[in-house]
Structures are given as structure tokens and as C-alpha cells.
Amino acid sequence: MTIPPLERAGLRPRVDKALSGFLATAREHLLEIDSALAGVADTVSAFVLGGGKRLRPAFAYWGFRGAGGPDSDEVVAAVSALELVQASALIHDDLMDRSDTRRGEPSVHRRFEVLHTAEGWRGGAAGFGDSAAVLLGDLAMVWSDELLHTSGMGLAELARARPVFDRMRTEVTVGQYLDVLTQATGDTSLERAGKVARFKSAKYTVERPLLLGAALAGAGPEILASYTAFGLPLGEAFQMRDDVLGVFGDPVQTGKPAGDDLREGKRTYLVAAAFGALGEAGRAELDAALGDPGLDDAGVERLRAIIRDSGALAATEARIDTLNTEALTALAEAPIDDEARAVLRALADAATRRTV
């Protein structure tokens, strides 16, 4: 029986174990400050451990192994820090998008809004929820640093990894800002959509994790270049798949309401392709409804039809296939361990052919 790529080397449960141990210790530290922080620790723990594909630690781990790094619990702990960066990004993303749910559960700002109401506290419940989400997202980012540096990896390995980790976190943060800026300006160009996808998700999901693993292993420039040639197109394909699911995905599988990306006015490659293919009337209709938070189910279906009939969905699927082929070609030529190559190929399929 073929072992799923995320389960190879027992990676997923090992990542969860590393996160659980770290978060348990972090909880103790918070309780030393004030018992009121139990809810903070428990919410971050539930968010981090309650789901997620663990793709980023997987790419980092197999990037490490592909570059000749030996398996150890220490390297698993180090790459698990990426899940705390992801938690920070998602908590803030849900707040900025005013999303009510994440993975089928209330988003963090909604959880604290409900808590405020239930306890009958003073002030506005929504404002309290928003403030809590900002701070919990920041805390998860701080903890990502702490987990990396307490992972047990040597000082030399951490010194090599640090610039990659820092650059990655900068890129995902400014990528998020470019996403917000693009919605505000209404930019519908493919160039802008591609740049947002590249920095908000593509580099941060695949390329930088691969390079982080490679840095921990002390990889040379040839492997680093190969990982970039593989990781960048694959990361863009991953984000485009995410964009397709954001419009056409099944809420039962995605854990988010249908059409949320349309209500939020996301200017994705899919949407940019539609604007480029539509006539004046179609562009006006799409532009008028995109970003309307009150868009009902019928409105969502109408926009889906406009996007599908424009040929944008087919064009995006074709672009995903092209990028995936480019990535796999680079992977085939990479001077890395054959086991890692096989797992990275399977991870590429998991990233681009998923339904959640």
C-alpha cells in the first residue's frame, strides 16, 4: 500500500507531537503571568492542532532530507515552527476578510466576540474579538521564533536557517498587504494577481520551506537553485488551486462558506482572467458584485457562471497544469536524494489536485 506523502517518515504525527509539546510548555508560561491567559493558550492550541495539511513542514523536512540531512526529532521540531507562522497568517487573514469560520469552526475573532457577549463584559464585543485576534496572531508569530530556536538544532544550522525564515515571514506579511491593496484599488491585471499569489502564498508555502530545510542541511547553491525552480511554480499552482476552491469549492470540504472570496472581493488570477476575457457588460456586472459582503447564494451562483462562461476557470486550470509540469521538470533534474524526490513529487500532486 502506498503511504500518503504527508505520512512518510511518520511526519504528520511527529509534527503534531512537537507542536503539542511546545504549546503545553507555552501554556504553562502564560499561566505564570495570569490565569486569565488560559483561554489565549487554549485557543491558539486548538487552532494549531485542530487541522491543517502540514504541507509547509513537509516541504521543509523533505527539502532537508533531499539535501542529505539526517532524520531527527530536532529537525522535525524546527520545521514545525512553520505551522505557527501559518496559524498567525490565518488568524490575521480571517480578521481582515471578516470570515466567520475556519476549518468548519468559528474564526478566532468570532470566538472572542462570543466570549465577550457570554461573559457580559463592557465595551463592544466585536472590537474585543478583533483586538484578541490581532494579539493572538502576533503571539503565534512570536512563538514560531521560539519553537525554531528551541528545536534542538545546532547553532550553525540555525544560523544558516535564520535568514530564510526571516525573509519568508517578511514576504508573507507584505504579500498580505498587497492583497489588501489590490482589493482596495480594484486592480484586475494578471501581473498584479500573479505577484500577490507569489508573495502571499507561493513562496511561503513551497519555495521558502524547501530552502529552510536546505539551509538546515547546509545545501550548496545547485540544490538551492533547484528548489527554487521547483518551488516557485508549484507554489503558484497551489495558490491558484486555493483560488479556484475559494469560488467553486464545496463548503463541506473546505470548511468555509461558499463564495467567500467573491464577497471579500479577492482579485485572484481566476478573477483577473475573467476580467480579461469578458466584454464591457460582463466586466461591469462582475465588478459591481465583487466585494459585496451581502452577496447571497443566488448572487454567488451568478458570479460563478460569469467566471466559468468567460473561460477563466478553464484558463486557470490550464495554468495550474503548466506550472505543475514546470515544477516537476525541475524536480526531476534536481541533484537530490531519490526518496526525497519521490515524496516531493507526491506532495506536488497533493498541493495542486486537492479539494480542500
Rank of each mutant, 00 (worst) to 15 (best):
D73M: 14
A281K: 12
A133F: 02
T205I: 02
G10H: 03
D296C: 11
D349C: 11
G39M: 06
K17A: 14
P4I: 12
E146Y: 09
P251F: 10
K203W: 09
D73K: 14
D338W: 10
P13T: 08
V174E: 10
R27K: 15
L328C: 10
T170D: 15
R241V: 04
K200A: 03
A312R: 03
A348V: 05
A332T: 03
L31V: 12
A24T: 15
I320H: 00
V75G: 01
L328K: 00
R302H: 14
E222S: 11
G249L: 01
R103V: 01
S80E: 00
S80A: 13
T355G: 12
M168N: 03
R304K: 15
L328I: 04
P221D: 13
K203V: 05
M96L: 14
G175H: 02
T43N: 09
F64H: 09
A156R: 12
K195G: 09
L234W: 01
L37G: 02
S35P: 01
V164I: 12
V79D: 05
H92N: 02
R111H: 09
A272P: 00
A258L: 13
S99R: 02
G104Y: 02
L344F: 09
G186L: 07
E28V: 07
A348S: 12
P221F: 10
G69H: 09
T25W: 15
A58V: 06
G69T: 15
R169T: 13
V300K: 03
A315N: 04
S226H: 02
E236H: 12
R8W: 12
W143F: 14
M96R: 06
E119D: 15
A350E: 04
D297I: 12
H92G: 05
G220A: 15
L295D: 03
M240Q: 06
Q176G: 13
G154V: 11
L136P: 04
A272Y: 00
G137T: 04
G311E: 07
V300H: 03
L19H: 07
P106K: 02
R267F: 07
V164M: 08
G69N: 10
D338S: 14
L328V: 04
Y227E: 15
A217S: 07
A126K: 02
L181N: 05
D242S: 08
A140Y: 01
P57L: 08
L30S: 07
P257M: 01
Q176L: 13
L19N: 06
I3W: 11
S99M: 10
